[in-house]
């Protein structure tokens, strides 16, 4: 029963604390939305000061990550200032290990954009284009770090954009899968069925579909294999089906651990109960009344001796 509550507030309470932008009176289409909110005027000034401090090296970037993240995620902030501040976060990489290789990725910016995209997808769209021009690899990581359901339409748009670098389009597809949910499933199946995108992109969509497809995804992929004329797409779908099988039945490793846990814990308990039954009188399931305390109170006597 211990440690009952950790993660509870994180799990349940955010909805209570979250301040919805829709709750505020914001004049739609205003160029300077932060002017509409008195509190934000002050915040805006503080953020301008922060930018100045960063430019003049009066503060370290690492020390103001939270403030920068909040500013970038804030839909009421002036877009130009958001862009300036987001640029600062772009190169702030966090080291992670992927397949045994250590790489850097813009986690703080990814988290900020994942929040921002819910309320201001237009600014995020524009800003991502700016990032794409800076560094493709970093931008690929950025897209995958932004994987939230609200960003799915934007990812879909990027995946279908023939003018975009192909690696970025592939990352957008992976990001749709990583965002998960019914929306992701529908977008991925639509991409797979769409004859316009290149085959490699459609195969990537199949791979992204596998972990979230389940029975419905399996039926879809099987139907796709039956219908498609492209051997490459059929192979991709077959590979995705193999991946999908991991969600459909227990793996060998899982079965082994199930058997081990069952044998050692349940078997162990039964084994010692059998010892109790065979060696003791009365045994575990005996109804025999052992009655009240027999003999002298040894414990108390010894305890008194201790005193």
């Amino acid at each position: 029963m211990r440690r009952l509550i950790p993660l509870l507030v994180i799990t349940l309470a955010p909805g209570v604390f979250a301040q919805q932008p829709g709750d505020q009176e914001l004049v739609a289409g205003s160029d300077e939305p932060w002017r509409e909110l008195p509190d934000h005027i002050l915040l805006h000034v503080e953020r301008q000061d922060l930018l100045f401090d960063l430019e003049t090296d009066q503060v370290k970037l690492e020390d103001v990550v939270d403030e920068l993240t909040a500013a970038v995620a804030d839909p009421f902030e002036e877009p130009a200032l958001r862009t300036e501040l987001a640029d600062r976060l772009f190169w702030l990489g966090t080291e992670v290990e992927v397949d045994g290789v250590t790489i850097e990725e813009p986690q703080a910016l990814g988290a900020a954009l994942a929040v921002a995209v819910a309320d201001d997808p237009d600014w995020v769209r524009g800003y991502l284009r700016r990032c794409f021009a800076k560094d493709v690899f970093y931008s690929c990581r950025l897209l995958e770090l932004m994987a939230v359901p609200t960003a799915i339409p934007l990812f879909d748009e990027l995946a279908r954009d023939a003018n975009l670098d192909f690696d970025l389009r592939l990352s957008a597809v992976r990001a749709i899968g990583a965002a998960e949910g019914r929306g992701a499933y529908d977008r991925l199946t639509a991409l797979i069925e769409d004859p316009v995108p290149p085959d490699q992109l459609r195969v990537e969509a199949m791979t992204a579909l596998a972990p979230i497809g389940y029975d419905e995804g399996r039926a879809f992929l099987e139907g796709f294999i039956a219908e498609t004329d492209s051997s490459r797409l059929a192979e991709g779908a077959a590979a995705a089906l193999e991946l999908l099988e991991e969600t459909a039945s227990m793996t060998t490793g899982a079965w082994i651990m199930f058997a081990l846990g069952f044998l050692l814990l349940f078997g162990g308990a039964v084994f010692f109960i059998i010892i109790a039954v065979r060696r003791s009188t009365p045994h575990v399931f005996s109804d025999e009344d052992e009655g009240e305390d027999e003999g002298e109170d040894e414990g108390e006597d010894e305890g008194d001796e201790q005193r």
């Binding site: 389940y214 459909a248 039945s249 490793g253 899982a254 651990m257 199930f258 846990g261």
Partner: peptide
């Protein structure tokens, strides 16, 4: 099965 794999896959 997907859930049990998450729980038991070593």
């Amino acid at each position: 099965a997907a859930g049990l794999n998450y729980f038991l896959n070593p």
